[in-house]
Amino acid sequence: MAGRNVAMREAIRRALQEEMRRDENVFVMGEEVAYWQGTHRVTRGFLEEFGERRVRDTPISEMAIGGVAVGAAMAGLRPVAEFMTINFAFLALDAIANHAGKVRYFFDGMFKVPLVYRAASGWGNQATASHSHSPEPIFAHFPGVYVGCPSNSMDAYGMLKASIRDDNPVLFTESIALYPKPGPMPDDEDTDYLIPIGKGDIKREGTDVTLVAYARGVDWALGAARQLAREGVEAEVVDLRWLRPLDMDLVYRSFKKTNRCVIVEESLPMYSFGSEIAALLQENMFDYMDAPIKRVAAEDVPLPYSKEIELLALPDAQKVVDAVKEIV
């Protein structure tokens, strides 16, 4: 029996809770995660169940949150460190890029760093420039750290569990816009439901164009696919789920069938997810390419507060439809 529909927020909460029950070494730390039950309510009930030793409120000290997690992981714990939003993870970028992702390498395998950084991501609702980032590709730039970005409840559940159980550092992003979105879950008994790190997924089959996306972009791609279907265009939607490692084989298989591709992301367009996928496609799939690769992303501008121009800057399903129509 398939599990009931739950919001993505609840799926993440459940995955984390079950992993903490399973493994004593897993603990959470972050701003407002304990007494206030998490800014996004992901750690609701955790303090009561696991106590202060394993559910730790931190000061507003992102640099330390990032680095303390690395040290604790090297020493044998399995920290799940929360950045209230990914905007604040920029302050910890050094710990993430230079230490989480590199200590194993520069000590030639002497240590492992089994940690997960969780961060709420994305923009909208007039959060304004410094609180309006979807910078997953920045974190995926650095070898040594995996990056997971789920698009629905079931994936979030299986991906977070896999991240916690993996011996490598994982940056796990959670689209704020998707937190309330309900979706099916694995069977209640299946607490070992894992989505392997680096495994993408076909969210919709189609023959005419491949839409490659992750996280919130998947919803825009699926929305566009429904609209295109009414006009006789069948889009295949590839949800990569992980920005590192990238499941390019899945993209290539789809592309060999459709010969056309639009890449969809919430992030900024330059040096982006779209840039990377497009580059790999042209290098490896040149013979299968029937049209230019198109990219749909946010506009290349800081996000404004004012609501109408904020919407102008953001991608949506219609922008995906428009891009597809340029190449089919």
Binding site: P269, M270, R295, V296, A297, A298, E299, D300, V301, P302, P304, S306, K307, E308, I309, L312, A313, P315
Partner: peptide
């Protein structure tokens, strides 16, 4: 009035904002 145009969206990204890029590059 609310700002509504692309011009207003991009304005003042740089001192010389006419070098900004749209998504289509």
């Amino acid at each position: 009035e609310l700002p509504k145009s692309y011009q207003e969206l991009f304005q003042n990204t740089y001192v010389n904002s006419n070098l900004v890029h749209k998504t289509d590059m």
